[in-house]
Write a protein that binds this DNA or RNA. Structure first.
Lengths: 242, 242
DNA sequence: CGGCGATGTTACGTTCCTGAAACAAATTTT
DNA sequence: AAAATTTGTTTCAGGAACGTAACATCGCCG
């Protein structure tokens, strides 16, 4: 469980300790700095998601750090300050801070605000680790499977006009590409939970056949949907997420 | 100078007035709502960047609005509350709010926080020139959907005379163009009151049928509103903003 | 109170999906 | 090679999902 990396810049050793404990427990990777210099070092050397920033530091003003952060990386910035001063708040926020929290505060509020900032931060990095959530997949034969509109398009952008059942089947196969799925698995994954599967049920075979025909996957050696005799079916090849 | 659209949901008339004045001066387009119902209406019909949300409203809890907002659009959410209660803060932030501000506050702080939220928001929507910001849309069939007057016009400027229900439906479909929407989604997104949806409810079908008839969308292959059997409906084609 | 328009409900016709049956083809077993 | 098993494919009927008309209901406004 690694929810992200947080840099805490704070010269009060007690608060620093409490923060560190709490956030580590919370599942974050925590870096600590007690002055501007060491903060800069961390910023240069580590990938940081959120910075907790105390403005009053022994060797300079934290405001400069905001500027540095905005120019050098996209980390979220939450200012922690002992002063409840509107002008200071406005200055920090205008300079690019994402939030401003007045001491003293409760840990769970801070944690919630970190989450809120991270949420927005993640929303702005759409391409990266998209695992199973992608809306569009490119199948090995070049067809595009678009979950958002229940459609499959061939390279020339004509639609394959799959039925809902056929689409679900293809979707399940693509999701477990390069793994064999038994008829029973396919049967249950393609319908809303409540259906009994009979071992002699040929329903899946028929759907497979119809699907193959529609996507032009008759048996030519690089076959997309392969039959594993006695076991089930498997969609094989490279799947790209778009 | 149009810096964005802000929806202020607040039942205190005085505060509402002050907010409105200040934000308008600041260059924002300001929408006002004093209860959940009218807020839902604005959310359904307007492209909103940031919502200022008072939790205590005469006809319900603002928390539900957070849920609605997170699911239906990507607006930033700033909660304004009279209570300085950590648990409430945490709940709001966890549900998806971007910031939480305790009354009383100074206008300039609020303005700075709005800017901070908008900054993050903009950072996340540069690539898809998403259609959510316009009052007028051109549908794939050439008709113009005008949110400001609740009407739809064809290329010869004749009006389609949609009822409000039909208009809402079309609006929701257009907002999620090229994505399938279930009957349940359509049902709930088109009515403000949180009516219960029955799976066997055909109300949506009927509305779809009436809508299709009025905009001349009988089944000819390039069909605007497509039926995805067993799933729902989808408006497909290119949507231009005007 | 009565008409009117908008919306939901019921009912029925239609379309289209789906799985069972049946047979052919392929593969394995005897 | 024949039999047995498994899978591919077509046909077909049942039924689920949908389209739509007709009717019922609700709310609104005079």
């Amino acid at each position: 469980m690694h929810k992200g990396t947080i840099l805490s810049v704070e010269d009060d050793e007690h608060l620093q300790f409490v923060l560190s404990e709490y956030l580590t427990d919370d599942g974050y990777n925590v870096l600590l700095a007690r002055d501007v210099r060491s903060a800069q070092e961390h910023i240069a050397n580590s990938a940081i998601n959120v910075v907790l920033l105390d403005l009053v530091l022994p060797d300079g003003d934290g405001l400069n750090l905001i500027t540095l952060l905005k120019s050098s990386c996209s980390a979220g910035i939450i200012v922690l300050s002992g002063k409840n001063d509107t002008t200071e708040k406005v200055v920090c926020l205008e300079m690019g801070a994402d939030d401003y929290l007045t001491k003293p505060f409760e840990m769970r509020e801070m944690s919630a605000r970190i989450k809120a900032v991270m949420r927005r931060l993640e929303a702005q990095t759409p391409p990266p680790p998209s695992n199973e959530l992608s809306e569009k997949l490119r199948l090995p034969n070049g067809w595009i499977l678009d979950r958002s509109c229940y459609q499959v398009f061939d390279p020339e952008a004509r639609s394959a006009e799959l039925t809902t059942g056929e689409f679900r089947l293809l979707n399940v196969l693509a999701q477990s590409a390069n793994r064999v799925l038994s008829r029973e698995q396919l049967f249950e994954l393609t319908r809303e939970g409540n259906a009994a599967f009979d071992v002699y049920d040929r329903a899946v075979d028929i759907q497979i056949a119809r699907l193959r025909k529609k996507i032009g996957d008759v048996q030519k050696p690089p076959q997309l949907i392969r039959t594993i005799r006695g076991v089930g079916y498997m969609l094989c090849g490279q799947i790209d997420t778009l």
